[in-house]
Amino acid sequence: MMSLDSLLPETGSIDNKTDHKTVAPSFKTVGEFKLKDPRISCQNIVVRYGEKLAINGLSLDIGRNEVLAMIGPSGCGKSTFLRCINRMNDTIEGCRVTGKIMMDGQDINSPEIDTVPLRAQVGMVFQKPNPFPKSIRENVAFGPKIHGFVETKAELEEIVENSLKRAGLWKEVKDRLDQPGTSLSGGQQQRLCIARTIAVNPEVILMDEPCSALDPIATAIIEELIYELKKDYTICIVTHSMQQASRVSQRTAYFHLGELIEVGDTKQIFMNPKNRLTEDYITGRFG
């Protein structure tokens, strides 16, 4: 295990134009994209799908135990960026990611990094609830089982119960743990997916528009849950809804056409955006 502080590179001096051969970004990001003691530090990320440039030289730090919201119009690259952080883009054919993503002193974007422990550390919740076609219990137990966290059945039961409790689902499902995960309602399914992610005990949770397929009541429950989880986890959430971003996050980043336009304190971004584009988006002129 790496010691976090000693191996961190200096985070102060990132120049968009020096590190990698990229198309020069047309914007200089407004706001504090660098942090003093970040959990994850992304430097100069470029993502291409085949010939298409999806993210163009983006740098952004993610702090400890914060909720970072990423907003922006469709196709602005916010989901793509999120998927870089736990290397989910590896599963997409023809997708190439360059740049540095530093975490615990390691560049997790380097090809030598094993994605298995990385993804155990950086969990992910997807846009559409995707419970496995197994029982509720099996869904939650999946991660602990494959990673070998438990030796006895009792231990496993304990993890399942705790994870479901933390995801606020325990009361609703404790009597029907053996029913298929797909039998739950949409909001419950998404909380099941969160429980499934928590069960692996990650440090960072990435959420890719977790409420876009849900009704307002289910959304409210999940937002509450995110607020709760903030104590123990670093959370990055991509969202379409500005209200959601303002409700759950401390920091907000605004993406536009593959570039990070503005990042800063959520209140500041919504009350007093510094960039015209951000302002236009937030005031609903496009989006």
Partner: peptide, 24 residues
Amino acid sequence: MSAGLPRKKDTIEIVRRGLKKRHA
């Protein structure tokens, strides 16, 4: 830290220990 789950530091250790076998 919630009961039942290993501490976060240990989690990674446990995962790493099993890796060789799993990749094989």
